[in-house]
Design a protein around this nucleic acid. Structure first.
Lengths: 133, 133
DNA sequence: AATTTAATGTTGTATATACAACACGAAGCT
DNA sequence: AGCTTCGTGTTGTATATACAACATTAAATT
């Protein structure tokens, strides 16, 4: 037996993500936005205009998963598309306004994580991430 | 601005988990079991007998989330409990049999991840994990 | 230009997850 | 003993995710 079950990388990374997302939710839920939706907004905000498949590629999300996220974000009035099929997405006016409250909340979540993991955490995570890319 | 949005730890760890789970699924789905359910079976298998709240604590799962996972695992016939409330769980005969096919499949998933991340990946992940515990 | 093929988006179905609210049971307290 | 409190388990509701199947558009081939 080469590996011990307690080493299970999938279980371990799942535990870590649940811990991190719990922290994020304390900052994001007052704004009525989830971590997943926040991630997508950050991607759109960075690119100004971006195709749906490119968002899926960046976040490694299955097409159908992203499709449903986009419906939710659009329903919340934060994003808009230029066509019904193969849409190019951008933030709506409302969405740009919303980013002004989202970004500070997101920064606070990042700061709390930073206070826990420290430089050592950032560095080791970055090293691990590179081995997966 | 202290952090750049592209550094978002929650988004990044989500991407990594989706990548890893995709690998796991190629090995586990032929056995008709999900990664989450597999993780729980590994925990029960290790402890022989274990309370539900302890499983939740080990995997950092919300009570209600675990509750539904247990229903699914029980429905699949892999686990059994000694009481209807505050149950102590253990593998069923069927479950013990199933572990003989699950463990090799799980090992293959681990080996594929190992081939990607290598020693550097394991070490950096372990370092990161410690900063979160 | 018409047809075929590939890429992309959505819908059906199932699992996974969390929070809130509720239910139950075990200790403690009086 | 009766009541209260706390820990624990389940159910209601919403979001998140993936795969399969289908729909639609774009691209390529003839």
């Amino acid at each position: 037996m080469e590996f011990s079950p307690s080493e299970c990388i999938s279980a371990r990374i799942g535990i870590l993500q649940r811990k991190i997302n719990t922290i994020y939710r304390t900052y994001l839920s007052p704004l009525n936005i989830s971590e997943s939706q926040s991630s997508i907004l950050l991607v759109i905000n960075k690119s100004t205009e971006i195709g749906q498949s490119e968002i899926a590629s960046i976040l490694n999300l299955e097409r159908s998963s992203l499709s449903r996220n986009m419906v939710r974000l659009e329903k919340n009035g934060w994003i808009e598309k230029n066509a019904s099929y193969h849409p190019i997405w951008s933030l709506s006016n409302n969405g740009r306004k919303f980013m002004k409250t989202l970004l500070p909340a997101w920064e606070n979540a990042m700061k709390e994580v930073d206070g826990i993991i420290g430089n050592k955490g950032w560095e080791s995570f970055g090293t691990f991430e590179k081995t997966m890319s």
